[in-house]
Write a protein that binds this DNA or RNA. Structure first.
Lengths: 190, 190, 190, 190
DNA sequence: AATGAATGAGGTTTCATTCAT
DNA sequence: GATGAATGAAACCTCATTCAT
């Protein structure tokens, strides 16, 4: 977890990413200034510019380093036959992948306006569409298409919104996963 | 036409709210400057400050004027017995209420980080919790609780995300409503 | 005392002066805005402009209305022979005159930088010089000239600075007057 | 004298303080804008903010750097027995210390309203009280207490007000010092 | 006698970014 | 691998003032 790795020497680049994500997720991208990041790291702003060309690049680099697990889920699903079992397993794997990138997901959820203007926004949106397509049955009725999207949103809600309410995170995540699988199953059988 | 206040002639206050919401929803709250709003209205920044004390107050006033329909749904639901029919009707009414406030919903969805720091954030969050509680069966298993939350998120997704994809907005909304009602019904029968 | 006259009806002009002086003395001239004055009076800023052409004019009008007693002291002293007794009596009368205009004196003391740029600044300065000249013995040694100035500053200190420290205001004023008379007497006998 | 040091090259922080004090003393604190300071230094406003966090901090830093001599006078006086000779010597040293900080003294004299709202106001006031206490004879009659305060005000008048009138500044200062010592001596013998 | 609406100028402050060292 | 110094643009906001009504 980003905030628990102090690592004084050497890998400043990594430390910048960690602190930046902490702050971006906590306060939002625009409200987080490079001064703030630098201060928390006890370096100067100029040091950030040694490692990254722009503020946006810090964010981009975080995405590049942390979204691989999700891309792997997609690649895996693509290589399988489009059966119900594949889709169910895909949701399971996706839910797992989200655990590691929880903070990044929270960031995405809460900074959609920002994401839209930023270059990665497109990438993320495309990834989401790809997943929906992998879940969908061709020419399914509209309600079933909604169910597929809803399944994904349920996983997200389970990670982000529900965490702030219910008790045990892991239990909540399992429940969300169950509901999501249920939705996709209904969509498949229709 | 966002609200109910008299309007008559030269009602700048109203025009400010309208333009501001347009821009806030389009670009995000922080990325929208008062200069931009003023320019689009062909007034000076100072004119905005005649009508609103701060930038935040513009946003707050928009919420105050536009969230009444949703509050009315909640009040209505509170006055009914907590039957399945009530819950279904509540979702229907909520979905309807969202149509009028579509832009505001998009704003909330995409600016969650901003909302959290702003005073209205709490209000909105509380409203969401209230709705969840009205949908919930006391002591329902966790999965059913997730279903209730998921029903609401589905309506939101139907309004916001899905609109950008599918064909006819109204058809999509109806499909989302159907799925949401389905979810709540499952939760109820469990 | 300005702050104790509410006087709801009619003489708004007077009420503006009272509130303005209260605020000018309390916070300084530049830090007091017309908005503040208007708010405290529960009128609009525009109303102030019905009674006074500019912010500065409010201040000028206060001086015009409140400095007559001091001018009378000067006029009186001018009409007398320049004896020690005259000078002593002049200090006594001046000290008395200061009581009524205490707030205005505090304002002058604390806003000298402002006064210098404002038109009345010159007037006030000239009045001070006039008083010094009336106290001075022609061709007195420099130290005695200092004593005369010092006598006046002692009265001021007795009104403004010392008031914030010692007990009974009236007693303090009398003590300051005594010291001032003492100084002028020494200057005279030298 | 702050305005007469060209300061070679590089030391911007110092130059900012110098120019700022010049302008603050000349026009008053509020009427002096950061734009003005920056322009006179031929740097941008942002450069000022690299060296100082706020406008107030510029002023505070000037005080911190320039009031040490006065604090040393106080410390010295504290370490001596409270004899008349000590008090006389204290006034002499204080008068000397004022020469170096003449501009700062003028600023304080003319911007008391401003000082009161600013954090250093308290510090300055406290310093003044301390000096009065060091000059005072315990349980002296009120008039003698006034004499002590008057002695200090006389020094100030000698530095600020009288300078604008009389001929040679140094001669004036000596005369003021003489009168002040006289006052304190009277207060002591009473 | 006073208001409602607006303006133009200017205020302090913050930001992402650059570059010589 | 990083700093110190600085910039240009722009942000939010406040002010004294005006004028039609």
């Amino acid at each position: 977890m980003s905030s628990s790795t102090p690592q004084r020497r050497g890998n400043t680049r990594q430390r910048i990413q960690d602190v930046a994500l902490d702050l971006f997720a906590e306060q939002g991208y625009e409200k987080t200034s490079l001064r703030e990041i630098a201060e928390r790291l006890e370096v100067t702003k100029a040091a950030l510019y040694y490692h990254f060309k722009t503020k946006e690049e810090i964010l981009v680099s975080i995405f590049e380093d942390q979204t691989r697990p999700i891309d792997e889920v997609i690649e895996w699903a693509r290589a399988q036959p489009a059966t119900l079992e594949t889709k169910q397993e895909m949701l399971r794997r996706y839910s797992n992948a989200m655990v590691a990138g929880a903070q990044l997901y929270r960031f995405m959820q809460e900074n959609q306006a920002t994401m839209r203007e930023l270059s990665i926004g497109e990438t993320v949106r495309r990834r989401l569409f790809t997943m929906v397509e992998l879940l969908l049955k061709r020419d399914a009725p509209l309600t079933d298409q909604v169910r597929c999207v809803s399944a994904l949103f349920t996983l997200h809600a389970g990670m982000i919104f529900l965490q702030q309410v219910e008790g045990d995170p892991e239990e909540t995540r399992q429940a969300a996963l169950e509901v999501a699988i249920d939705l996709i199953t209904q969509a498949h059988h229709a």
